[in-house]
Computed example of a mutant assay.
Amino acid sequence: MKLLIATNNDKKVREFHRILEPYGVECVSLKEAGIRQEIEETGTTFEENSRIKAQTICDLTGLPAVADDSGLSVDCLDGAPGVYSARYAGENATDDENVDKLLAALQDVPDEGRTARFVSVITIVFPDGRSFHTRGECVGKIAHQRIGYNGFGYDPIFQVGEGRSFASIPPEEKDAMSHRGKALRLFVEELKKYL
């Protein structure tokens, strides 16, 4: 099965490919489909933003569209950056700028207060109006400094073990435990009911 992935984030598309390919799902990015649509995320929840993106691309193309909205929720910051994770340090902030702002916000917070979770919500919208979403979470804590060079976004500071971050473990290991990996595996199971 071929699915159109409603994102312009190449690194996110690679994760989709890696996780869904073994299930026989071919992922086509917006770029590969020749779509240059920027989608404004106006929702206040991961579910709303994921739905907005999938619906926009489905309406535009007439094809089933899949979208992910994901982010980092830090407990001591009342869930921030949350749905604003990609633009935490400003509208066009880089990953490094977002990480730097978060590290600064947690500068005086001890280890036990640095608990956090990554959240991913995957939504598919079909041209006939059917849709569903799945949600995955991964609990960890925020490191005091960057650890590792893999991944993207907040991966270098999201600790999943002593001295280990998402950016310091192999991609396959990350996929097995990550929020997106969990949401996509649930997604595949749910998708079978719709086919």
Rank of each mutant, 00 (worst) to 15 (best):
L60A: 11
A86K: 06
K31F: 12
Q145K: 02
D155F: 02
D108V: 09
Q145V: 01
G62T: 05
E172L: 11
I52R: 03
K101M: 13
V28P: 06
D175N: 15
V66R: 00
I52V: 08
S73R: 14
M1G: 07
P156R: 04
E48Y: 05
F152V: 14
C138T: 14
P22N: 06
K174C: 02
V121A: 06
T42H: 03
T44F: 13
K53N: 00
I147C: 14
A86D: 06
G113H: 15
A183Y: 09
G24K: 07
K53D: 01
T94L: 04
A65D: 07
G136V: 03
V74W: 09
A93N: 01
S165Q: 10
V66W: 01
R130P: 00
G34M: 14
E15C: 03
I5F: 11
F126Y: 12
F126C: 07
A86F: 02
E47S: 14
T123K: 15
R18M: 13
S85L: 05
I19Y: 06
N8E: 10
G181E: 09
G90P: 12
D128V: 12
Y154C: 04
L103M: 09
R14P: 00
C138R: 04
C138G: 15
T45G: 10
V25W: 05
Y23V: 08
R164Y: 08
T134S: 11
K193H: 08
F16P: 00
T7G: 14
F158Y: 06
L3N: 00
Y154I: 06
R18I: 11
R114Y: 02
E32K: 13
P156T: 11
E91D: 12
C76W: 08
D95Y: 05
L106G: 02
P170H: 11
E137R: 08
G90Y: 00
D10A: 15
F126Q: 05
E48T: 10
K174H: 04
A6P: 03
A6W: 08
F126E: 04
A33M: 14
G181Y: 01
V28T: 04
R114S: 14
A89Y: 00
E15I: 04
G163R: 02
G140K: 07
Y84A: 08
D69W: 01
A143Q: 07
E112K: 12
G148W: 02
T42G: 03
S168R: 00
R185I: 04
P127T: 01
A67V: 05
G34D: 14
L106T: 06
D10F: 13
P127D: 12
M1P: 01
F46H: 03
F166I: 02
V83R: 00
R87V: 00
V109M: 07
D100W: 00
L63K: 13
E15A: 04
I19N: 03
T115S: 15
D78H: 15
K2A: 12
V109Q: 05
A167E: 05
C27Q: 07
L106P: 04
G34Q: 09
F166S: 03
P110R: 09
T134G: 15
V139E: 14
V25E: 06
P64H: 13
Y149S: 09
F187H: 08
